[in-house]
Every structure is written in C-alpha cells, then in structure tokens.
Design a protein around this nucleic acid. Structure first.
Length: 283
DNA sequence: GCTGCATGATGAA
DNA sequence: TCATCCTGCAGCA
C-alpha cells in the first residue's frame, strides 16, 4: 500500500512510538547487520517523510561500531546518521505496542523501544545515510503535496516534458508521493486523458491536479486508505463504502464509469497499468 | 500446491 | 524498453 499517504502515516506513527527514545536495532535477516549495529542504542530524534521516502534520524549513532562504543562516546566516533527506507512495491511494516510477535526470518530491521516495536520486511531500500547523502537524495525529489511544498518546480518540469502526463505523474523527480492509484484517480477527477502530453496540460489543469493531490493524499493519510469517490457519486459515507466502491477507475477496467457509465479502459503506460474513462477524460 | 500479479524503482541496453 | 530485485496473497487446480 505504499503511496505517499501511507508513508507519511508511517512517519507519524513511528515518530509517536519511537521518537525521543533510545532504540534497540537489529536485522533478523542479516542484510542490514552493519546498519542496525550502527544505530543500536542510539536516540531516534525524528522521522521524516518526503514522498515515498522515509528518513529516521539518529543522534549518537556510531557508523563504525555498535552499542559498546556508546558507554563513553568520543566526539570523533559519534555522528548524526539517518536510516533511509523505501518500501518499494513489497515493503511492509508490522507494528506492536506491546507483546511483539517474533520477527519473521526475512525481517530486514527491527526498531524497538519502551513504547513499541516496528518490524520492516521487503523494502527496496534500507540503508544508513550521512546528512550529505540524504541532502543529495532529497534534492533529486520533486515537491511533495503532503509537505506543503511549493508546486512551481513541478509545473516547470511539466512544461519541459513531451511524455504523457500519466507517465510524468509517476516520476518522483517531478512530484513526490504519487503512485499508480493516485495517478489514475487524480487524472480522472481533473478530466485529463493520461496519454496527453505533459506539455499540453494547461495551468488551470495543473492547479486542479495539484489541489486534488493535496486533498486526496491528505485524506488517504488520515484514513489510512485511499477513497477518491466524491459525495455526489456515492450513496453512503466513506466509512461504509465497500472495497469496490472507493475508486473511480483504478482496477475497474470494463466496469461502467461512475459518472457516465462508459466502460473504463485500461492499458500499459510507463510500464504500469493505467485506467481511465474515455468519455470523462477525452483525448 | 502453484501461478501470476501488485499502490516501486533502478541499471543496462 | 527490458530484466531484475523484493514479498504476500488471490485465484486457480
């Protein structure tokens, strides 16, 4: 479920659970042994999200050593380090406030404190990062609608692209946090055909897309679930909607559009499946 | 039990 | 554009 909304939700949850605490860290799977060792016993000072990226900031981490060094830390072997996590398609967190379930053998990282435990499995990225590397990574990311970022750089990027808008929306260097569900839903709501060139999106359409992303991502973060269907197009409150009533087009190929009953179409765009209504989103 | 697919991204070609 | 990495689960025998 990892689009930007869930990542920001995780950031807040993990900040609440572990922030300000000394955490124990280990890697049951072993693939993050060195990194876990470096932060084991360090203080988690903050958790930050940008788009689909998570950054866990630690004070008094020891890039070259573990907990033993921390008894009498010297200025030289201490560092402010981050753990950078990207869930990719398969990454998953498990959370325990109490009585943590033993981590599965595939668990990449466990972070444990008094208030709870977080277990991470299957991430695309889980790596130790110094501040300069983190800055470099973040500088390659587009504005994040969930962080109140200025959309101007995204608009400037769109003007330069001839690629389809449906492809450009997934480019994290243009806008951060949009995944395959939000790209399809937001284009439907803005009545923009996915195959239109990004360059041909009008300023008004871009403003609408950005406003929709802010609202829908914020909604998704709050609910922990993506619901895009607007009040006029449903008969029940969002909390009562069945799973197949929450979205306009995503995974609804062949089913009637909720607004005009035209069958929803799907095809490949940017190596992912895109869904759209040919009537509501005219070419 | 097996197969294929999935809300992602990267590096090679 | 393609292969590759990563995990879980729905759908099917």
């Amino acid at each position: 479920m990892p689009e930007g909304h869930s990542i920001h939700r995780y950031a807040r949850l993990h900040r609440d659970m572990l922030g300000g605490s000394t955490v124990a860290a280990w890697s049951p799977q072993g693939r993050f042994d060195a990194g876990a060792h470096a932060i084991d016993g360090a203080t988690l000072t903050d958790v930050d999200a940008h788009g689909k990226h998570l950054f866990y900031r630690f004070a008094n981490a020891s890039p070259d050593g573990g907990r033993a060094d921390r008894a009498q830390p010297s200025a030289a072997d201490q560092a402010d380090l981050s753990v950078h996590v990207h869930l990719g398609l398969f990454g998953r967190f498990r959370h325990y406030r109490a009585n943590p379930h033993p981590p599965t053998p595939g668990t990449r990282l466990v972070l444990a404190a008094e208030a709870g435990q977080v277990q991470l499995s299957g991430p695309t990225a889980c790596e130790l990062m110094d501040p300069a590397t983190e800055d470099a990574l973040r500088s390659r990311l587009g504005p994040d609608p969930l962080n109140g970022d200025n959309p101007a750089p995204a608009w400037a990027a769109l003007r330069r692209r001839t690629a389809p808008i449906g492809q450009v929306l997934l480019d994290q260097g243009v806008i951060s946090g949009v995944g395959n569900v939000y790209r399809a839903e937001v284009l439907f709501l803005a009545r923009v055909a996915p195959d239109r060139s990004a360059r041909d999106v009008s300023p008004e359409e871009f403003d609408e897309l950005w406003a929709l992303l802010r609202r829908l991502l914020r909604d998704g973060e709050r609910r922990g679930r993506i619901i895009t269907v607007q009040p006029a197009d449903r008969t029940r409150p969002p909390s009562r909607l069945r799973a197949d009533e929450r979205l306009y087009v995503y995974k609804r190929a062949g089913q009637p559009c909720r607004r005009c009953a035209t069958p929803i179409r799907s095809w490949e765009l940017a190596a992912r499946t895109i869904f759209a209504c040919p009537t509501c989103q005219p070419a």
